[in-house]
Nucleic acid binder design. Structure first.
Ligand SMILES: [Mn+2]
Ligand SMILES: [Mn+2]
Ligand SMILES: [Zn+2]
Ligand SMILES: [Zn+2]
Lengths: 147, 147
DNA sequence: TGCTAATTGAAAATCATTTTCATTTATTGG
DNA sequence: CCAATAAATGAAAATGATTTTCAATTAGCA
């Protein structure tokens, strides 16, 4: 947990956002979850404590948080849905189990060299990358063997 | 172009698929395109020569081709839509311009070392990865400067 | 040539996300 | 405190991609 809720609220204010109960609730749901949650899941969580908060508001809040780099997105292979997550410590990537959805974060991707080379070769100004490994977690490996 | 249409048809037959005019048309559209096409774009292309082919059939065919590893998917950052593409020579990745959508392929990602380490540390059986760089292509860089 | 399982397309269903719009509310300066 | 006001909210509808359903058609084999 890098930022406290207070700190995040401050950042939001600086951007001209108002701090509403809904935003507090959404923020809290994301901050206090260890998992990577889809918008719908965040909404569900928020509604347990604050019924009536609209899914639309969740989407709008996620957009702002994402824009400010306070949360990041996850892309799983085939079905291409994006999930929002709390950042463990800035820039990081995922190891996703295709069977059960378990996600493990890792931070050291070390793509700087490759990035520099590609940038040079293509004249692209690169400002980010998406890196995710897909496979089977320990448990799902076992199950496959047993079958 | 690694596989000829004939070769691909053979692979499809081996899997128990029938070779229909629709599938031939879809395959041809993908094979003869240098670009990464979304399902809708493939459908459009196919319909120029073969009006009446359903978008549903495009989706169904893409699913099979993807399953067989004959085509692969592309994921752009935020809006998370998946695009299908012809593979230039097997495993490869993308450099995507966030402004105009231009895509450049590259093949040497060199993630083996990282993959091995992660696998060891997490006991995951890793069977693939997703790697995409996002940025601005040469043209879009210029435009930004001019403004 | 005829059989049959696979395939097809239209239409409807799903599902995630966005837009619209009238109503409410957080913030601020008096 | 008390407006004034721009920002935020939620319901509902719109959008857009993808999937499902189902009756009709067809490719491939016997
Ligand atoms: Mn993560
Ligand atoms: Mn490619
Ligand atoms: Zn698993
Ligand atoms: Zn560009």
């Amino acid at each position: 947990m890098i930022y406290t809720e207070k700190k995040i609220e401050k950042i939001l204010r600086q951007r001209g956002c108002k701090i509403t109960p809904q935003r507090r609730a959404i923020l809290s749901a994301i901050i206090h979850s260890r998992e990577h949650l889809a918008p719908a899941a965040i909404h569900k969580k928020v509604c347990q404590e604050h019924p009536g908060v609209g899914l639309v508001t969740v989407y709008r809040t996620l957009e702002i948080l994402s824009e400010l780099g306070l949360i990041c997105e996850m892309h799983a292979g085939g079905n291409c849905r994006s999930y929002m997550m709390r950042r463990p410590s800035g820039h990081h990537h995922h190891l996703i189990c295709s069977d059960c959805g378990t996600v493990i974060d890792f931070t050291d991707c070390d793509l700087g060299e490759l990035e520099r080379r590609l940038s040079k070769e293509t004249s692209f100004k690169i400002n980010g990358h998406l890196l995710e490994f897909l496979g089977q977690c320990r448990n799902c490996c076992k199950e496959t063997v047993i079958r």
